[in-house]
Amino acid sequence: MGRYILRRLLQMIPVFIGTTLIIFLMVYALPGDPVRALFGDKAPDAATLAALRHQYGLDLPLWHQYWNYLSGIFKGDLGTSYSQQPVASILGAAIPVTIRLALVAFVIEMVFGVLFGVISGLRRGKLADSVLLFVTLIVIAIPTFVIGYVFQVVFGNNLGWVTPTVNDSYNITQLILPGIVLGLVSLAYVSRLTRTSVVENVRADYMRTAVAKGLPRRRIVGVHLMRNSLIPVITFLGTDLGALMGGAIVTEGIFNIQGVGNVLYKAINQADGPLVVGTVTFLVIVYLVASLIVDLLYAVLDPRIRYA
């Protein structure tokens, strides 16, 4: 187990270097000169330009710039955005917001997704099952920005249950509606995945054994069925937590939430290279850690998985 974790951590190094390098090169290849852009319409003199280039290290060869960037990361320095703020402090303000939003969405999709999936799986072919399959299909088919705007108008503007946009991104109660919007598609996937898994396992031989042992039904379902059925679901949920942390660009935009997705959206629009690279680096790390945790969790849940 220890060796396995070590090997997984070592495997993360090339992935980390590869992704950051690609992003770094892509931002470098963007058209336009960011230093000139700082001056807007005015034409700066060559000496000022050169001084600024030197200040940002943009006069160095590309490999040197990348090296400076990588070594900065390990000192906790993600560079300085072109808006003169340290990238680390911009992300530092956005990450807690995104974590809150992601957790709200995660709890909603986990609790309701598994609940609906189990009910539906145990009543395969009945009305509740058909309704779930139909509704989840619709939810999966509708893009998030449509659901987001509809919910915003209906629950925010028309019914007035919540504020249409979030004015305090740290306030969890304001994040509930955006959380539902963010988690809805995953909720549909979790329901369907749970349902399929329950249907598959409910006819398994060990379920027959559990009945033959004279166990009460809640134990047969709650222990024997769940421990097996939830293995693929938990794997999905783990990966999805990583996706929720970074994939909230649309939702954060609709509800004006000052999270990581928002930061990334603005940075791309403003061609703010250091900020884009810094944010993406953060997201890469989140994904890597999430997938490592999922793999480890998988082995805990299913003892047949061996670390070879």
Partner: peptide, 24 residues
């Protein structure tokens, strides 16, 4: 009936690998 199952009348199945719960 449940209280009879397992306690008074018990059953042994053919394929023990699939009849035992793999994750317990």
């Amino acid at each position: 009936r449940r209280k009879v199952r397992g306690a008074k009348i018990a059953m042994i199945f053919q394929d023990a690998l699939s009849s035992l719960n793999p994750v317990l």
